[in-house]
């Protein structure tokens, strides 16, 4: 994409003036270009300033709008459930109720105590489920953050076979960490894995992570450490025995040049 096109797109994107398909495709480009992200950030500040020109242009809001904002925000606080370590607000009530029941109200108290115990159990289960969901959301968010960070560069490893497998290698050279994302990558035969290599210019391949693909052809590997070696020039993937190899034993199936 040439610089002029990029700036046209950045200005329009910041104003919300790209149609959805153009916007999505520009976003994919943005993930790879810190320069474009800077243009967009600046144009967004301009757009924000446009917004300030509207002030005073009509009747102001109701005087209770601020209170209503806080009420709306408080509603957002009710879910999620607090982590297991914290004390949720309603447990003291349940504890108090249990104490009252313990004082003794005959047969009815036994039924109520059981109900309270069952409710506590349901709450504990919900908290566990929520903890899992929270962890999944956090993991997904971290992945997206890793892809969208300003310093990240994308290398696509390609092959000549058909259907062509694609491996995207997102590298953050500052943090020395990378992320692998694959499409159309056939799972290996049993007893074998794919292995990533970082190859310095004129040097021996440096072994990296091993991974495999789902039957869908997708794989994602996060937190791949980028070796400290200088002049990393090429990333490659080979098919190795399970557990990986110290040096490649087969020809690379996918190769890509990584800028340093």
């Amino acid at each position: 994409m040439d610089s002029q096109d990029m700036k046209d797109l950045a200005a329009a994107y910041a104003l919300g003036a790209l149609d959805p398909a153009e916007a999505r495709s520009f976003e994919a480009f943005l993930a790879t270009s810190p320069e474009a992200r800077r243009e967009v950030a600046e144009f967004r500040e301009v757009a924000t300033l446009l917004a300030t020109t509207t002030e005073g242009g009509g009747p102001g809001p109701s005087s209770d709008l601020g209170d209503r904002v806080l009420a709306r925000v408080a509603k957002e606080k009710v879910l999620p459930l607090p982590p297991a370590a914290a004390r949720p607000k309603w447990i003291p009530w349940a504890a108090a109720a249990a104490v009252l029941l313990a004082v003794g109200f005959g047969l009815q108290s036994i039924t109520l105590r059981r109900q309270v115990a069952e409710r506590d159990k349901a709450i504990a289960e919900l908290r566990r489920d929520f903890g899992t969901t929270q962890a999944q959301l956090a993991a997904r968010e971290a992945t997206l953050n890793a892809i969208l960070e300003p310093d990240v560069r994308l290398t696509t490893l390609t092959s000549t076979s058909t259907p062509a497998p694609v491996i995207q290698l997102f590298m953050n050279p500052k943090k020395r960490v990378a992320l692998i994302h694959t499409f159309n990558l056939q799972p290996t035969e049993s007893g074998r894995v794919y292995q990533l290599w970082f190859i310095p210019k004129g040097g021996k391949p440096i072994p990296s992570v091993t991974f495999n693909a789902e039957p869908t052809g997708h794989a994602m590997v996060e937190q791949v450490a980028i070796p400290e070696a200088p002049n990393l020039a090429v990333a490659a993937v080979t098919n190795e025995p399970a557990g990986g190899s110290p040096q490649p034993t087969t020809q690379p199936i996918l190769v890509g040049a990584i800028g340093s």
Binding site: A135, Q136, A138, A139, A142, T143, V177, V193, Q195, P207, S208, V209, T210, F211, N212, A213, E214, H218, A219, M220, V221, E222, Q223, V224, A225, A242, G243, G244, P246
Partner: peptide, 23 residues
Amino acid sequence: MLPSCGGSAMGYRLMDTVPVLHV
């Protein structure tokens, strides 16, 4: 997705949500 851990001494850790959160 089932990434397997490379057996190398560099000890890459994969798909471990706790370190991801920490980072």
